[in-house]
Amino acid sequence: MTVVRTVAAAIPRAPTGIEGLDTLIQGGFPRHSVNVVAGPAGSGKTLFGLQFAYNGAARFDEPAAYLALEENRESIERVVATFGMDLAALEATGKFVLVDLGAVRAGSSRDGIAVGLRELEDFLRSLIASTHVQRIVIDSISAIGLRYRSLPDLREEMFGFTRFLRESKVTTLLLTESPEQGRLTRFGIEQFLADSFLHLALEEVKGDLRRTLTVRKMRFTRHDTGKHPVHITAAGLVVAQERVA
């Protein structure tokens, strides 16, 4: 047990900076890993992704790119302003890159509505080379999966894409929606191809909605497996240390 703990602790980490979370995952996501955060609408996925990217650039000297495929630039800027993140200053210095890929997607009449993973890989290769970002958030891969006709096709493409991300030496967060009932992720395969899988949930408790977070999987990490309440405060998400049933 001691050996396992020593090895795990020695792995470089990319702290999320989200209050209460890093202590549950030995300090952060393993660097250069691919991580999936799933949750239903309103569970806090976008805010989670923005905090991971923003904190990387602002606090941990890890320039970050946030790729919005479903929400537009104005919407994202409103979110960050609400939680006191000074995006403009970071963008001006090149430490934070907000890319509204939906603007390209929506405007294209020839290639349909969805961006494919190979196109995204081609885009990221150029972006990483030109901006030297170390963190990437893709919001969301649900939009990308719609491009594929069958799950085996998507799985094969996803496998190649996640391998490309690891080889690119970036720490990646893939956001995906989870249906209200049934599967944990939109396509049911995202979590198997990633190094870690965090699930955000919205539960009704005595007439109120309660947000929770569970770290369901994280390679190279002795992580907490409990379900923790999540609160949205003026400073963003806060993960409570106590567990809920």
Binding site: L101, V104, R105, G107, S108, R110, D111, V115, E119, D122, F123, L124, R125, S126, L127, S130, T131
Partner: peptide, 16 residues
């Protein structure tokens, strides 16, 4: 555009 966005996204942007 391609130097930053990659050729496919750049092609879309130019076409738009």
């Amino acid at each position: 555009c391609g130097d930053v966005l990659g050729p496919a996204a750049a092609g879309r942007l130019v076409r738009i």
